[in-house]
Computed example of a mutant assay.
Amino acid sequence: MGIFDKFKSNRAAQDKAKKASDAAEKKINERTGGKYENHVDTGQRHVEDQLGMSRDQDRGRDRPDQP
């Protein structure tokens, strides 16, 4: 069992990671004036999906997949 397997089963750690991820996204968008907002969101979504943190389902969002 690897470190990410433990992370995927720990809901408290996932919630903490989501908050940190959202804070980082907000800070990046502030610093770039939102210029790369779509790229940042796509990257954040990709990382969260890889870690098993399905953010759209947890937050009640229905976003279409980006091309």
Rank of each mutant, 00 (worst) to 15 (best):
M1P: 07
I3V: 14
F4N: 07
D5T: 07
D5I: 00
K6H: 08
F7Q: 03
S9E: 15
N10S: 01
N10C: 02
R11Q: 15
A12N: 00
A12L: 05
Q14R: 03
Q14G: 04
D15T: 06
A17M: 14
A17F: 15
K18D: 05
S21M: 14
S21K: 05
A23Q: 15
A23H: 11
E25N: 06
K26C: 03
K26N: 09
K27T: 13
K27F: 10
I28S: 05
N29A: 08
E30G: 06
R31M: 13
G33H: 09
G33W: 09
G33R: 08
K35M: 14
H39S: 11
D41C: 03
Q44L: 05
Q44W: 02
V47D: 04
V47G: 04
D49H: 12
D49L: 10
D49R: 14
D49G: 05
L51R: 02
L51V: 00
L51C: 02
G52N: 03
S54A: 15
S54F: 14
Q57Y: 04
R61I: 12
D62E: 14
D62K: 14
R63I: 10
P64V: 09
P64R: 10
D65E: 15
D65G: 08
D65F: 10
D65M: 12
Q66G: 13
P67W: 06
P67E: 08
